[in-house]
């Protein structure tokens, strides 16, 4: 059963169309990824699904409820971990959790055990009584994640959940997210810049660019659709005409003296390619990654490092009161 359905969902800000006729169907228990460069419209999409922004056009049904007509029921079904800092700096981690429990209708009888268990999960039990202004960026992120899990929503939106986390915590979190979706059938919609994360975590992905879905499938199939392995050659004078005659060479891209080929079953054909193309300085062959998929559909490299998104800068300047 689809728990999220959008039909031509559109959001315009003045002249800018941030989300353009989005059609999604997300199944119960699925981990669905939204992948796209800065400004692609990921956060805007999630905000509309969470009733924070009214759509300009089109429809969205979340857990069976129309986001326009039944905002309150929609909000009863969801949890949201925001891209930007969203806790009160003057309160401790535990106090922020307590606030959340009160606001999001957590059964208050066993609220203490619940808070303990999410704090343990993100490994913050020892910092729970520290005011959040003394948390590091990663610690704050972890606390906000724990908070999103506290009320056990049916649908969980994670907007760049692992931005700024160290690799260890990140993997920790992935396994928890997987467990959550497998055991509790929680549907998870996650946006991310990390290709590796999207690949490992998501059952299905939509690649978004300029508010449009340019590709949507499982990570494995997306990679397969590229039609083969990526072979990179460093070569001064390639014989491109000769390569074009080989039918297992699907795509040829040349940038300076770097030649990138998409080759079906490169292991079998590498010898032949090298023979025809001319004298090569170096060669590298690997199976396609989501990065290649992304590059193929958007023409852009997604920035892989942890610096983007302005998360830490915004945090530095945000000074809550």
């Amino acid at each position: 059963m689809a728990v999220i359905v959008t039909r031509n969902l559109t959001k315009r800000f003045g002249n800018l169309t941030a989300v353009n006729k989005l059609n999604l169907e997300i199944e119960e228990g699925e981990i669905f990824g939204l992948l796209g460069p800065n400004g692609a419209g990921k956060t805007t999409t999630l905000s509309m699904l969470a009733t924070l922004l009214p759509p300009s056009d089109g429809d969205a049904i979340v857990n069976g409820f129309d986001v326009r007509k039944h905002a309150s029921q929609v909000r009863h079904s969801i949890g949201f971990v925001f891209q930007d800092p969203s806790s009160d700096d003057l309160l401790t981690g535990r106090e922020n959790l307590y606030l959340h429990a009160l606001m999001y209708g957590v059964n208050m009888r066993n609220v203490n055990e619940k808070m303990d268990s999410v704090l343990r999960l993100v490994d913050l039990l020892d910092k729970q009584h520290v005011r959040m202004k003394y948390y590091s960026g990663g610690m704050r992120r972890r606390l906000e994640l724990a908070r999103g899990l506290l009320h056990e929503p049916k649908i969980l939106f994670l907007d760049e959940p692992t931005l700024g986390l160290d690799p260890q915590t990140r993997e920790h979190l992935w396994s928890y997210i997987k467990k959550l979706s497998a055991e509790k059938k929680v549907t998870i919609i996650v946006t991310t810049h990390y290709m590796e994360e999207a690949d490992l975590l998501c059952d299905r992905l939509a690649i978004i660019d300029h508010g449009r879905v340019v590709a949507m499938d499982t990570p494995a199939r997306l990679k397969k659709q590229l039609g083969g392995d990526q072979v990179k050659l460093k070569i001064r004078k390639p014989n491109i005409a000769a390569l074009r005659k080989l039918k297992y060479v699907k795509n040829i891209k040349r940038r300076g003296d770097m030649l990138t080929l998409t080759v079906n079953e490169s292991a079998l054909h590498l010898q032949e390619i090298l023979k025809r193309v001319g004298p090569v300085e170096s060669v590298e062959s690997r199976s396609p990654t989501l990065n290649d998929v992304f590059l193929h559909y958007t023409g852009k490299e997604i920035r892989e490092s942890g610096e983007e998104g302005g998360y830490f800068e915004r945090m530095l300047h945000s000074g809550n009161r």
Binding site: A50, S72, H76, F80, F82, S86, D88, S318, G319, R321
Partner: peptide, 21 residues
């Protein structure tokens, strides 16, 4: 007026997404 400060960080979103009127 300080509610503007809640807007600058996402704390206000955390409140507004809660199932509260």
């Amino acid at each position: 007026l300080y509610i503007i400060m809640d807007k600058r960080v996402d704390f206000l979103k955390e409140v507004l997404v809660a199932p509260l009127g």
